[in-house]
Amino acid sequence: MAKRIDVTDVDIFYGAFHAVADVSMTVEPRTVTAFIGPSGCGKSTLLRTLNRMHEVIPGAHVQGSVELDGTNLYAPGVDPVAVRRVVGMVFQRPNPFPSMSIFDNVASGLRLNGVKNKKVLSEAVERSLVAANLWNEVKDRLGKAGIGLSGGQQQRLCIARAIAVEPQVLLMDEPCSALDPISTLAIEDLIGELKEKYTVVIVTHNMQQAARVSDQTAFFNLAAQGKPGKLIEIGSTEKIFSNPDQKATEDYITGRFG
């Protein structure tokens, strides 16, 4: 189910602007990889190239290759829509569809991809909500609007929506930055459980979070404003947080930077 990701010599551009330079890394299946680094260093941009979501922004393009179990996502003839069915994403702010109920939100990915069978849909909705630790809170009000939930519940609803289509990889772009500590804890526990089935890549500004949830940590930095972001160091979370090879990594993690 989960897949391995190989990023090789990736450069990302927004028009003429060189956003991320020369990144190579490997993400093993059924692991959590955290991207950390200062704002503007290209973590989110790189994350978005893993399911070609950056293409939503006009002028964005990528050089190099991103392989999912050996299949290059950027080979000619690859459909970005098909890529996103395999590589799901959870965003910074909870974004349930306001026109849909809780049930419809979770079912939306399947329904919009042509699944009509009611039994299949309701089973997938229950399974996904259970997996997102939200089932007990919402099982009696599945018909109510998704945006009536609290922020933390909304974010878990979005996670349920993302995993309902059974992706191979789940990308999370600062999924807790808009949430309170209790909701954050709920999401972090959830990430630990999701790891058993999915390959998870998470962008976070919260060092403790990276340390708590991830197996592998990648630190990004940029030399100056307007310069491309670079991968400074990647390694097991334990090593990055206790004994990093690069001084820049240590400075950033311990709060000594600039």
Binding site: V81, N95, S108
Partner: peptide, 8 residues
């Protein structure tokens, strides 16, 4: 974006 990310 949420919809695109579901492969829609």
């Amino acid at each position: 974006e949420a919809s695109y990310a579901l492969g829609v």
